[in-house]
């Protein structure tokens, strides 16, 4: 029991922090309720999916700076193809876009492995490439999202046999997020592939000597990141109803959430729940400050400070731990 506790202490701390913040929000704004949770979930969804993507590749010892640009590519592709499509066609479009995301990730990963150039440099160049691709597909914001897709993230969940009063509190966007997480990550985490991600991330040489195909594992990690980026791009289109060719602020936010969520840059340690919690914490802080009618620019300062202070604190704690 204590072992499980100490192993997940960071995640548990984040969860506690999130709970405290929710209580504070309720105190600041007594009206905070179903609609507040719903808008929080919707605002956090693209950020959370971006952070999941970043977390996977960081765990495997890489980093993907082209994440936000890949989201832009998938967002415009989805919006362009869905414009005027029927419901059935739009399902195919979603599947195609997911494949596209995984394919872009595979390209990134293959380039990292084949060119032997550091990950940061490769994905920095690919940032320009994917950004250009998005602009070629759609020059200005436009396109449309299928109505069923838009409905997927609005409002609470309704389940059969469960009274609505219970389920209405759970925003559909949060459910959507956890379904994505469960469908994509759980099978990987439970299989050999997940173990290989962690092995390559913590020590690529040791993993290679134990017979892990390091190159192929890295490519797979980048492909999963691309898949999450595609989900993120769809989430952007889902919440705005259009495709946006200019990448949003997702890259820096994703790196911040990943580090805050307890995933170690350099790889091999951390999970995917932590980053998701971190995203919700950062969004909730932003929302609270808006509720208190603080200048939105001050909000940026607070966000940056939280990130830096928490990471500094983590660093100091880690040093203490090593000394004793």
């Amino acid at each position: 029991m204590t072992r499980i506790l100490s192993k997940n202490i960071w995640t548990l701390g984040l969860a506690a922090l999130l709970a405290v913040l929710l209580v504070i929000t309720k105190l600041i704004q007594p009206d905070f309720g179903v609609s507040g949770l719903d808008s929080l979930g919707r605002a956090a969804l693209p950020f959370a999916l971006a952070s999941l993507g970043m977390a996977v590749v960081v765990i495997a010892g890489g980093i993907d700076l082209s994440l936000a640009s890949m989201m832009a590519v998938t967002s415009v592709t989805a919006a362009t193809l869905m414009d005027g499509a029927s419901d059935g066609q739009s399902v195919l479009v979603v599947l195609f876009v997911l494949l596209l995301g995984a394919a872009m990730g595979t390209v990134n990963g293959t380039l990292v492995v084949v060119s032997r150039v550091p990950d940061i440099v490769v994905t920095l160049s690919m940032l320009f490439v994917w950004q250009g691709t998005a602009l070629l597909i759609l020059n200005a914001p436009g396109g449309a999202a299928a109505p069923w897709l838009r409905a997927l993230s609005v409002g609470g969940v309704t389940l059969p046999f469960v009274p609505e009063a219970l389920t209405v509190w759970l925003p559909k966007s949060v459910v959507f997020l956890f379904v994505c997480l469960a469908v994509v990550w759980l099978p990987i985490r439970r299989s050999k592939l997940g173990l290989m991600f962690y092995a390559v991330g913590s020590d690529a040489l040791a993993a290679f000597r134990s017979g892990v195909p390091v190159g192929r594992t890295k490519i797979a990690a980048y492909a999963v990141t691309g898949l999450f980026a595609a989900l993120g791009g769809i989430a952007v289109t889902m919440s705005t109803g259009i495709g946006e060719p200019i990448p949003g602020p997702y890259l820096l936010a994703a790196v911040a959430a990943v580090v805050l969520g307890g995933v170690v840059l350099g790889g091999g340690r951390g999970g995917l729940i932590g980053p998701v919690l971190a995203v919700f914490i950062l969004r909730l802080v932003r929302m609270d400050l808006t509720l208190m009618s603080v200048d939105p620019n001050v909000t940026t300062i607070v966000e940056g400070s939280i990130m830096v202070v928490v990471v500094m604190f983590g660093g100091v704690v880690a040093m203490r731990g090593r000394r004793t």
Partner: peptide
């Protein structure tokens, strides 16, 4: 504090940018 330079400079950049926006107002 031994923070990773990528994260630290990213955070400082965010904070500094926020300060700039506030200053500008």
């Amino acid at each position: 504090c031994r923070v990773h330079p990528l994260i630290m400079s990213l955070g400082t950049g965010l904070i500094a940018n926020g300060c700039l926006l506030v200053y500008q107002r």
